[in-house]
C-alpha cells in the first residue's frame, strides 16, 4: 500500500498570525522529502499539520487512502495517528517516559490503538541494529541518544504506519551517530516502502537522505525540487544564500559567505510582499508590494523575470 500526501493551499495560524501561509506540497509515494528551514520558518508547524495538529485556517492535508486530515474529527484523527502516520517528534531522545520501560510504553501504545500484537517491534529494532530484548526492558536513561532516536522510529512504525515524519531527527547527535541514524532512515524507508518527510535545519541531512527538498522561509515554501538539482542549482536567493553559508571541507575557505540579516519570527514576518526581501541581495521594487507566486517550483520575482 502506497500513500502519498498532498498539501494544498494550507494556512496554519497561531492567534491571528500565520505560521504557515498558503503552502502547497506533494509528497510522492515512496519518496523521502526533506523540509529545510530555520527556527520560525514554520517547518515544524507544517509537519504537525500532517497529524491534523494546529489551527488549520484554510487549505487541506490529504493523505491518499486516509482522507483530509484538516477535516477529520478528533476520534478519527486519533485512530489515524500512529496507525497510518508515524511521527518522530523533535527531541525524541527525551520524549520517552522516564518511569516506564520501553516495552511497557510499547504495550500502552498498542492498547490505545486496540492492537494486541506488537511482535513487529522485534524485527524492527533488530533491523536498526538494536537487541530487542535488551531495549524493551530498558528505561530511557539506560539508552544512548542514538538508541533513543531509533526507539522513537520504532514507535512511529510499529503499528505499520506508511507515512513517516521525522522532526529534527539528528539534532544533538554527533556525526557518527547522525550518519548511523540517517542510514537507518534510508534502509527502513526502502524496506517498508514508506512516504517519508524529514524536517531539519541542516541542508547536509537533507542532502544525505532526501530525494526531494522543500525550502521554507517565513512560513512559505520558497523553493522545492529534486535535492541534487536544488543543491547544484539553487534558484531562490534564500536557498542560494543558505547553501553558500555552509562551510566546506575542501577548497578555498572563503567560498562560504555569511547570509546577512536575521530570519523573521512569527511576529516580524512582513504581511505584504516577499518574506525574504529584507535579506535579499537582488531585491526589486515589486518585492515589497506583492508576494511572489510559486512558478515552476520557485517563489521569487527575480527568478520569474530572468526565466522569461
Amino acid at each position: 500500500m502506497n500513500m502519498g500526501v498532498t498539501i494544498a493551499g494550507l494556512t496554519v495560524t497561531y492567534g491571528d498570525l500565520p505560521a504557515v501561509k498558503d503552502v502547497s506540497l506533494r509528497l510522492e509515494d515512496g519518496t523521502i522529502t526533506g523540509l529545510v528551514g530555520e527556527s520560525g520558518s514554520g517547518k515544524s508547524t507544517l509537519a504537525l499539520s500532517l497529524l491534523g495538529h494546529g489551527n488549520i485556517a484554510s487549505g487541506s492535508v490529504f493523505i491518499d487512502g486516509v482522507g483530509d486530515m484538516s477535516k477529520m474529527d478528533k476520534g478519527a484523527l486519533r485512530a489515524v495517528r500512529g496507525a497510518k502516520i508515524g511521527y518522530v517528534f523533535q527531541a525524541a531522545q527525551n520524549s520517552l517516559n522516564p518511569l516506564l520501560t520501553v516495552g511497557k510504553q510499547l504495550l500502552d501504545l498498542a492498547k490505545s490503538h486496540g492492537v494486541r500484537d506488537v511482535r513487529g517491534a522485534h524485527p524492527l529494532l533488530r533491523r536498526m541494529g538494536l537487541d530487542p530484548d535488551r531495549v524493551l526492558n530498558s528505561y530511557q536513561h539506560e539508552l544512548s541518544g542514538g538508541m533513543r532516536q531509533r526507539v522513537g522510529i520504532m514507535f512511529a512504525l510499529v503499528l505499520n504506519a506508511h507515512v513517516l515524519v521525522l522532526d529534527e531527527p539528528t539534532t544533538a547527535l554527533d556525526m557518527i551517530t547522525q550518519a548511523n541514524i540517517l542510514q537507518i532512515v534510508r534502509e527502513v524507508h526502502a524496506d517498508r516502502g514508506l512516504t517519508t518527510l524529514i524536517v531539519t535545519h541542516d541542508v547536509g541531512v537533507v542532502a544525505e537522505v532526501a530525494s526531494r527538498v522543500a525550502v521554507m522561509y517565513g512560513g512559505r515554501i520558497v523553493e522545492c525540487g529534486s535535492t541534487k538539482e536544488v543543491l547544484a542549482n539553487p534558484r531562490h536567493p534564500y536557498t542560494r544564500g543558505l547553501i553558500n553559508a555552509i562551510p566546506r571541507l575542501t577548497g578555498p575557505v572563503d567560498v562560504a559567505k555569511p547570509l546577512p540579516g536575521t530570519p523573521p519570527t512569527l511576529g516580524t514576518i512582513p504581511a505584504v510582499g516577499c518574506v525574504f526581501r529584507a535579506r535579499c541581495p537582488i531585491r526589486m521594487d515589486v518585492c515589497s508590494a506583492q508576494e511572489p507566486e510559486m512558478i515552476d517550483d520557485v517563489a521569487c520575482h527575480a527568478v520569474g523575470v530572468t526565466a522569461k
Binding site: P260, P264, T268
Partner: peptide
Amino acid sequence: METGPNSLPP
C-alpha cells in the same frame, strides 16, 4: 552589521 528585524514592535 547585524541589526534587528526591520519591523520590530516599537
